[in-house]
Design a protein around this nucleic acid. Structure first.
Lengths: 205, 205
DNA sequence: GATGCGTGCAAGTGCTTGCTTGCATCCTAG
DNA sequence: CTAGGATGCAAGCAAGCACTTGCACGCATC
């Protein structure tokens, strides 16, 4: 039975990688089978559908994402520490799941079956972060002249872009080769400086 | 003959929109024809190929992009002003062209014909900005403890994300509704504050 | 009034894709 | 040793795709 489980895992891993690279519609069941090293028929026997594979994948992600909420973080009054932890989580998460998830989000337009699946994740994270940033603004930790939703968007833009450009677009890889940890660290420094109260650049133009 | 030109225009416009929404592979020639209000055969008579349509589109973009270089900006010693102007350009550009271009960049993986076309644009802009930011660092305008390549990546992440999330992903539209100009302004404020010399957040961890 | 160009329409070709079916093979549990 | 479940393999099917061909129509120009 270890073989059976193993087969499932290999299929899902292969599908995840291919979805990230080529999107949902761009990934053929034959390609998944080949990458997983199984016969194509096995896919359908295990998951009935191509969509079944997607569902299983989404389920797997949802399970792994359980702990990923702002509220469950250690010391919320430590704004800097919290955001650092969040950024690490986000990048790690995006590295595992996000490459495929981001790509699939784009496919949500075209493929209705993808759209169904993708509803949850980002939205929940987003509004959670917006709430948190709003609180920190009122606590005087963060500058008040920038909308918390803009801050949150910037935060996700910066973190997800790290992964997006490196893994999915794979453009930045050709452009330069700063390791992702280092790039993340520096980017977060930028973000924190920009977002903090009492900055020199506060003039409203 | 006005009709002939018009036909070409309508086809390219339709293709651009559809590529933005569904990507290259996800867009069928039938769909383009229908959206353009012409017969499918007309596409092939005008552009020989589906790739021919892509080429024509890329050509059209390239023509419009001519002026978009860092070097051609007014007063380079005015760091803030220059970056503001660049951000405006970038967002405007991305709004016109980028929705499709960004989407196509993702397809570069799968479709070799797309890859050929997409080589230029972003890379050129990117390294141009890296150079500029490096100079401004040496002039003491920008903080020295962040790699200019990271800064540039953050810059493009922030600006392109504006367009990406609104037009392509169309997720942010559901999440919140700050007009893009306002969001861009605030985001740039964040970026400038984060990037400037003499910020309070300069501690290295 | 004939010529040529741009276009529409109908039909079809070869290829790929998602998915199915039938049969043989292997491995493990009882 | 035998029964059942998981897998492989070969073949195929219907649909959708990019792309082609042949013919007819309208509309300018000479």
């Amino acid at each position: 039975m270890s073989t059976a489980e193993d087969t499932t895992t290999r299929i899902l891993d292969a599908a995840s990688e291919l979805f990230a690279e080529r999107g949902y519609n761009g990934t053929t069941t034959r390609a998944i089978a080949q990458k997983a090293g199984v016969n194509e028929v096995t896919l359908f026997r295990r998951f009935t559908n191509k969509q079944g594979i997607l569902n299983a994948l989404a389920q797997k992600w949802a399970d792994g994402m359980a702990g990923f909420v702002v509220k469950s973080l250690p010391d919320p009054s430590d704004t800097r520490g919290t955001l650092e932890a969040l950024a690490e989580l986000e990048v790690a998460q995006a590295t595992h799941v996000g490459a495929a998830a981001l790509r699939l989000a784009l496919d949500a337009h075209t493929a209705p079956e993808v759209r169904e699946i993708m509803g949850e994740g980002p939205g929940g994270n987003f509004s959670g972060l917006v709430d948190y940033l709003g609180q920190r603004q009122q606590a005087g930790d963060l500058r008040a002249d920038v909308d918390p939703r803009v801050m949150a968007e910037a935060f996700f833009a910066l973190t997800s872009q790290m992964v997006m450009s490196r893994q999915v677009l794979d453009v930045a890889g050709e452009i330069y080769e700063i390791p992702i940890q280092e790039a993340t660290r520096q980017t977060l420094m930028l973000f924190l400086s920009g977002v903090s109260e009492g900055v020199n650049g506060g003039s409203q133009r």
